[in-house]
Design a protein around this nucleic acid. Structure first.
Lengths: 349, 349
DNA sequence: CTGAAAGCGCTTACAG
DNA sequence: CTGAAAGCGCTTACAG
């Protein structure tokens, strides 16, 4: 059907081995021969058949990102997609391609993502920690199959993983509020069953401790997931005898709802209530005032995961790697109190 | 290295052809033999090597979605990702896998996505209309390479494509405002160089015409892309002698900004100004009041594209298909005027 | 119903 | 520097 290495060999008057060597830029080939072969390729419109090449090498140069998405609300969270973008961006210039597999659909039609591994459809896997189950990992390790986990596993499980520094996120957000003279800082997270939320809480507690503030259990809440949860929680806070004067939220939408509540109750932001949240999307910049957030660079997280995986594919090692990415605070209107009415003369720009 | 069909054949005391037939559920095989072979597979822990299978069939059972994303703002738009989800969901149960290729990164490292085609890395392609250039399409057509375009091409270009019914979107949103007794309805879109914006405008004009309203050029604006654009435009509208009493926006964020402006100017929504927008994400539900939108089912768009592509792969045809998906209006607080103070008795629930 | 053999299009160790 | 040949692990037309 299409032009093969054989046709090129015949046209150039050389063997297929020589054509193959030209394809692979082998140093053994004389410039004249290479030239001749390349001309033949051009004339015939030859393209190497990657399927055959894969077969000879027994690899695919494909890695898969396994995701775990149930429609439709997951699309409000671009989490996986930024990671995906980072991965693709990193691997493409290195000659690798990205396959996307959704564990939910895979499971409906087979044995889940392990088929990708055992049938040699991909050279490596990046998967969220939520899909890490010991049975499967055991199998992959037995095969020396390269994989990287996104998200820190529980119990210091020894495997390749990358994560953002959630403790740092909790710490810098809290410290920022403390530096803005907030005194009673509450902490509102999702489920404390999730390790990343535990880490964030640790960071919050560390920041308080470093500044000699003692934590108040009444100010630590978990299980908030929606705008409505945020609204309800903030309302509850404001109804108290001794309410917090600032809140760290681990979720953007929750913070958005809380901000609405604070405004509805007539509180001035940030003078009377300070708010800091995590993640920069979707609403941090849209609210009035815009919300100070800990920005998490998920594109970079993807890049790190991909880099770790390709390294593992190219030179397998028994030593596992872990990588924790730092985060940075984007200061916006919900947290920065004016400390004096006028800047000092030397501070004017 | 790993277990092959040969090992299974030896263990089961049959030929490799027989093992292969069992793998493919051939009807020719006697139940007893099949049983024997399956047992051997189980004992040896055999998995078919998909690379070899691909090689024999000369296909990969992979299709690629080519996207066209530049970081980082594109992540605020989940457009591609919902489509991606729909595609994956459709193809996975049919034994196909999804590859993601970003034209931007591909171009940096080679000849763009055409390498996917010519090197036989994928069996088919789904690509956005923005990447349709005649040179490439010509090549793919010459090869009978299956592909589907997302988005209606200009000039009725004859190829397989899917799109949402943008004209319908423009029409139902405008009609909805008319039915709520709005009289001077403005239309604000992105660039009218984009066909989908032209189609939306057509729909708007059609709705006006059907209700005997004549369009006013002063009320038709293009080139709005951000929250800030929306704010500025709405402010400008409200400063006029004869301002619009409602606006159709083709972009969510623009509508969000416009809504802020209207509120800042003390207008009551929807009594004094009606607003309808397109797309349901990210802000339509978050604003106060929430914005009435035309919901575009991008997951379904992905499913339709995938379905069309697999059909093309499985039974190639010279006839091209086009598919236009209908849209529906989600009525929210920015458009529905109370027509009477009290519902009629028979309407009370 | 089953097997021997050719074939899918490359790569590469070996020989020269 | 180049070529003949074996090999990567399946599938399938052909013969029986």
């Amino acid at each position: 059907m299409s032009v093969t290495i054989k046709d090129v060999a015949k046209a150039a008057g050389v063997s297929t081995a020589t054509v193959s060597r030209v394809l692979n830029n082998s140093k053994l080939i004389s410039p004249q021969t290479a030239e001749k072969v390349r001309n033949a390729m051009r004339e015939l419109g030859y393209f190497p058949n990657n399927i055959a090449r894969s077969f000879a090498y027994q690899n695919t140069c494909i890695i898969a990102l396994v995701v775990d998405i149930e429609e439709p609300t997951a699309f409000n969270n671009p989490y996986f997609y930024q990671i995906q973008y980072g991965i693709e961006k990193y691997i493409c210039p290195k000659g690798y391609y990205l396959m996307i597999a959704n564990e939910n659909t895979l499971n409906h039609s087979g044995t889940g993502f392990s088929q990708l591994v055992f049938e040699k459809r991909v050279d490596g896997l990046i998967l969220p920690v939520s899909l890490l189950n010991k049975h499967l990992v055991k199998k992959m390790e037995d095969q020396n199959f390269p994989f990287v986990i996104i998200g820190e596993p529980e119990n210091g499980y020894d495997t390749n993983w990358v994560d953002v520094n959630n403790k740092m996120a909790g710490e810098i957000s809290t410290t920022h509020l403390i530096e803005n003279q907030f005194q009673r800082i509450a902490f509102v997270s999702g489920s404390q069953k999730d390790l990343f939320n535990k880490r964030r809480l640790e960071g919050y507690l560390t920041a308080l401790a470093k500044h000699g503030l003692s934590p108040d259990p009444d100010l630590i809440k978990e299980g908030a997931f929606s705008k409505e949860d945020g609204y309800a929680l903030m309302s509850e806070f404001m109804g108290r005898q001794n309410p917090p004067d600032a809140v760290v939220f681990t979720d953007n939408l929750v913070a958005f709802g809380a901000l609405s509540a604070a405004k509805a109750y007539g509180r001035r932001i940030p003078d009377e209530i300070g708010i800091v949240s995590f993640d920069n999307f979707p609403v941090a910049e849209l609210s009035e005032p815009p919300i100070t957030t800990v920005d998490i660079d998920l594109i970079n997280l993807g890049i790190q995961a991909a880099s770790m995986l390709l390294q593992e594919i190219q030179l397998p090692s028994t030593t596992k790697q872990q990588s924790l990415l730092s985060v940075r605070l984007i200061k916006r209107g919900t947290s920065e109190r004016a400390r004096r009415e006028q800047p000092a003369p030397w501070e004017r720009s």
